[in-house]
Design a protein around this nucleic acid. Sequence first.
DNA 1: TTGTATGCGTTATCAC
DNA 2: GTGATAACGCATACAA
Lengths: 339, 339
Amino acid sequence: MHDLPDPPGGARMRDVARAAGVSAMTVSRALREPARVSPEVRARVEAAVRAVGYVPNRLAGSLSSRRSDVVGLVVPSLENSLFAATVKGISDVLRREGFQLMIADSLYSPEAEEAAIRAFLEQRVAGLILHDTLHTEATARMIRRAGVPVVENGTVPAEPLDMVVSYSNREAAKAMTRHLARLGYRRVALVTLPSAANARSRDRRAGFLDALAELGRPSDPRLLLEMPPGLASGAEALARLTEGAEPPDAIFFAGDVLAAGAVLECQRRGWAVPGKVAIAAFDNVDLLAQLNPPVTTLRLPRGEIGTRSARMLLDRLAGRQSGPAVLDLGFEIIQRAST
Amino acid sequence: MHDLPDPPGGARMRDVARAAGVSAMTVSRALREPARVSPEVRARVEAAVRAVGYVPNRLAGSLSSRRSDVVGLVVPSLENSLFAATVKGISDVLRREGFQLMIADSLYSPEAEEAAIRAFLEQRVAGLILHDTLHTEATARMIRRAGVPVVENGTVPAEPLDMVVSYSNREAAKAMTRHLARLGYRRVALVTLPSAANARSRDRRAGFLDALAELGRPSDPRLLLEMPPGLASGAEALARLTEGAEPPDAIFFAGDVLAAGAVLECQRRGWAVPGKVAIAAFDNVDLLAQLNPPVTTLRLPRGEIGTRSARMLLDRLAGRQSGPAVLDLGFEIIQRAST
DNA sequence: TTGTATGCGTTATCAC
DNA sequence: GTGATAACGCATACAA
């Protein structure tokens, strides 16, 4: 909290009013509803605004009008570029509609998310977009009391707080697993990110298991692995899964850039992909298409999740949409040479 | 701008005061300077806060105190993961100090940057962090009038607005170019991102040319290329530079993931790196270390730029630091097998 | 240690 | 079409 440097140069609305020879109220109207002010007055106000270098104070405006043009966004991590596409989509829509974006990361911790949301509510954000779907009790209570609209993004939760825009992690993982089975792979392994605080990882594993059950295949615990994110981690996963007896003939890396790390490790070992082992990924990052071989993966609507989330939120704020809503944007399998 | 849902559940400070049997002013103090309130009163206030589910209104607080705990950040792109490390560093420091982060992208356009900054100033941010160093006249004027502290980040500009935290793109490019010469490469090509609206690209080219001049080598225009960002773009650059007569024996990709794209293209062509052509990059992204061969590059203090920028800004706000300051955080060459 | 009066800069409301 | 007045919810300054 520190000094706002208004004093010297900070012109207020009344300064503009004086310069234009009108009341402050007229300046306010001229700025927000130009149509409701006579053309000549409007021109005088606009000139005065430029003359004094007036920058409206939205803190005061929001306090008075009880409206806000700031949206709060919480992502699990600011470093993971997967979320970047969604953030970008959100930002694009908000900018076009004259809203501002306040952002924080939860570090995959519901408690940190709670703190971030509390801070946002103190700033009186107009609405929230949350990438995580796992929240503390206090978080849910705060949001309910505050009455702000919320869009959740990470997956389709069993009990949404309010609105949801996502794809189904479970269905996506299931679809890819069936795809691998259809291609003839008999022993498919699954690698996910740590699932403890990550509903998405859990959904993906559930989808994988759904598919195996449907196929009438037993699920072998030796074929299930959790790894931290990162390329090196993918290489490590490959090593572990292939060193035992009965190694998998295909590995489905359901998170981050693990698959890319594994393909690069195969290059180093001189292993043919998919000859020695097939590799599939979960997200359509550029790298996967450029690797040798290019990697089979899922196309997820990362950017669209952002734009649709922002639109849904703004629609609600504008009263253009009422109830809760769950939007499943689907996914697509991209078959490439790695499988 | 839309309705703040305070009315129903929105407890105000006076509601807490009533519940605690004290004045609103005492609640305010108990919350911000607990030490200056008697322990029993403090306890009563805290209980009342929980009882009524009070969430302070910082809009009102900031308006009254003329302070703000929001910092505005403008990055060229929200999608480029290179900036993510810096954003993360900024966010970490701000969180710890109880500040909030408002973010916008400039799309490499000074006009878009100006619009974002204007919006931030309307929100009465306490300070600004700008990744770009190229600003419109109006931007500079606005910031000066507003009197908010600013940290610039992208490179070390000739005429800083205020404070600067960066490394020198020019020196870094120069150092890598000399490094390649020292390794024995005779014809070194440079690939940068489009330099029109990008001071960093221009600085890097200048550094490259500095080194050539120092080495007494002519600069061959056939060895200078500008390409858009992306892996595919790097592959394309490789193709173009190697198809003519007198191809380079080393290519310095001074931007984005161009170098990685080029290495992957070499793999596809079965070209030995550095046998056929050596490849160097500009940023220490994970991928470069995992590629085959691992790629020589620069280690840039991306995260530290963020933390130091935020600290410098907060120091200024706290009055712990007065004048402008320019902090050059340096860089380091990472020699790997690709050169 | 606590309370009262006043103002922060804007907008809602209602008068003209 | 324009203006006067009273909030918005809190903190500063001062008094008790």
